[in-house]
Amino acid sequence: MTTKEYFLPQSLDEAVGLLADHGPSLLVIAGGTLAMPLINEGVSMPETVIGLQRAGLNNIKRTNGSLAIGATTTLTRMMADHTIPLLQEAAHHIGGWSIRNMGTVGGNLFAPPPSGDFAVALLALDAQVKLVSNNSQRVLPLTEFYTGFMTTALQPNELVSEIMVPVPKGKTAYLKYGRRHANTPAIVTVAVHLILENRIVKDVRLGLNAVGPYPIRAEAAERVLIGTTFDQEAIAAAAHAAAEECQPFTDSIATEWYRRRMVGVYVRRALTQLAG
C-alpha cells in the first residue's frame, strides 16, 4: 500500500476543505466496498485518501413530503427506514449483510454497472443529489448526474452530501434479476413508479440498470405508456420499447443479447405487478 495519508474528517466543512486543498489527487471513500478491493489488489494505488464515515452525513431527515438521505447512510440503515418501501427493497438487493453494513447510499451512486442498483430506485422516484464544495452548493436531478461509464457531473472539489427523494404518490415496483437470488451483480434491474387515474397512465418513471453505461431512465417506454390505458397491450408495448432503447453490454454475468431479452421480460413483469 502506497497510501501516504488517510484523512477522516469530522465534518462536511472539513471534508470539502480537504478536497479544495488536495484537488483531484484525493480519493474519496465512504464504506470502502468499491475502492478497497482495488487497493487491496494493487490495481489502485492512491496517495491520499479521505474517508467520509465521520463527516456527519449518516442520517435520514424527513421534511415535507420528501426524504433527505445523508450520503454515508448505510444500506442497512436504509433498509430500516419504512418511509419509502421501494428504497428498502432496493437496499436489500445489494450485497450481503456485511456489505450493506458498510456500503452507503452515496457511495452506491459511483458503483459502475452491473453494480449500483440503488440508483435505479432513485431514478424511478425522481431523486435529486446535492453536490457541495468549499464555496458552492448545487442540486442536480439524478438524470443529470451521470455523464458516462464511471463519469459524473461531479467537479473535482465537490462531494455528494445528500440525496433528496420525494415520497412517491403512485405505486412502485422493483425487480432485480441476477445469476443468484441475492448478493449478485445484475443481469437487469428494473424500478417503476406509476400514477394511474381511471386506468389511464398519468405519470410513469422507469429506471433500468446493467443495460447501459450508467443507470438510465427508459424514456421511450415511458412515452409509450403515458396517456394510454394501462392494460396488457400497453405493458407489452412498453416492454418492447425498453428492450429497444436500452444499451446492454456483454460481461461475465450475461451477454448483450440476453440482457436485452431480459429487459423486455422484467419490464413486463414489473409493470404487470402494478396492474394486479
Partner: peptide
C-alpha cells in the same frame, strides 16, 4: 458484521 478486509 462487517468485512474486515475492506475496513481501514
Amino acid at each position: 458484521p462487517i468485512m474486515s478486509c475492506l475496513l481501514p
